[in-house]
Computed example of a mutant assay.
Amino acid sequence: MIELLSYACIGLGIFFWFWGTYPLLGERSVLFKLHSLSVGDTLGSMAIAIGLLLRIPNEWPLLILAIISLAIWNTILGYVLAYCSRGERKND
Results as ranks from 00 to 15, higher is better:
18 F>A: 09
82 A>R: 15
42 T>H: 02
56 I>S: 12
53 L>V: 04
65 L>D: 11
28 R>H: 06
53 L>N: 00
71 A>S: 06
83 Y>E: 13
72 I>L: 12
75 T>N: 07
12 L>E: 01
19 W>T: 09
91 N>P: 11
19 W>V: 13
10 I>Y: 03
87 G>D: 03
40 G>L: 01
51 G>I: 01
75 T>A: 13
73 W>C: 10
13 G>H: 00
59 E>Y: 08
53 L>F: 08
5 L>K: 12
6 S>M: 04
63 L>H: 00
20 G>K: 02
91 N>V: 13
11 G>K: 02
74 N>S: 09
27 E>A: 12
72 I>N: 03
5 L>C: 04
30 V>T: 15
5 L>D: 03
22 Y>T: 10
73 W>S: 13
1 M>I: 08
92 D>G: 15
14 I>L: 06
17 W>K: 05
12 L>Q: 04
78 G>Y: 03
17 W>A: 05
18 F>C: 09
81 L>P: 04
92 D>R: 15
36 S>E: 11
62 L>Q: 11
8 A>V: 12
56 I>M: 09
11 G>Q: 00
24 L>D: 09
76 I>E: 01
81 L>K: 14
28 R>K: 12
80 V>L: 10
33 K>R: 10
47 A>K: 01
58 N>I: 04
73 W>M: 12
59 E>I: 08
69 S>E: 02
3 E>S: 10
91 N>E: 08
32 F>S: 15
65 L>I: 08
68 I>S: 03
10 I>K: 05
87 G>A: 07
5 L>V: 05
43 L>I: 12
1 M>R: 12
50 I>C: 04
14 I>V: 12
53 L>R: 02
60 W>A: 13
84 C>A: 15
74 N>D: 02
85 S>F: 06
35 H>D: 07
58 N>E: 13
63 L>W: 01
3 E>M: 05
41 D>S: 14
60 W>Q: 08
77 L>A: 14
88 E>H: 14
85 S>H: 10
59 E>A: 09
79 Y>V: 14
53 L>C: 02
56 I>V: 14
35 H>S: 12
88 E>T: 14
7 Y>C: 10
59 E>G: 13
15 F>T: 06
62 L>W: 10
50 I>H: 01
26 G>K: 05
67 I>R: 01
62 L>M: 13
40 G>T: 02
84 C>S: 15
43 L>R: 07
35 H>E: 10
66 A>M: 06
74 N>Q: 11
75 T>D: 01
4 L>G: 06
86 R>N: 09
10 I>R: 04
1 M>P: 10
8 A>M: 05
20 G>T: 01
2 I>M: 08
42 T>P: 06
80 V>E: 02
71 A>G: 11
14 I>G: 00
39 V>Y: 06
70 L>G: 07
50 I>N: 00
39 V>I: 15
54 L>C: 06
71 A>M: 05
34 L>C: 12
62 L>E: 09
71 A>F: 12
7 Y>Q: 15
69 S>L: 08
4 L>F: 08
71 A>W: 05
42 T>F: 03
87 G>V: 07
90 K>D: 08
36 S>R: 15
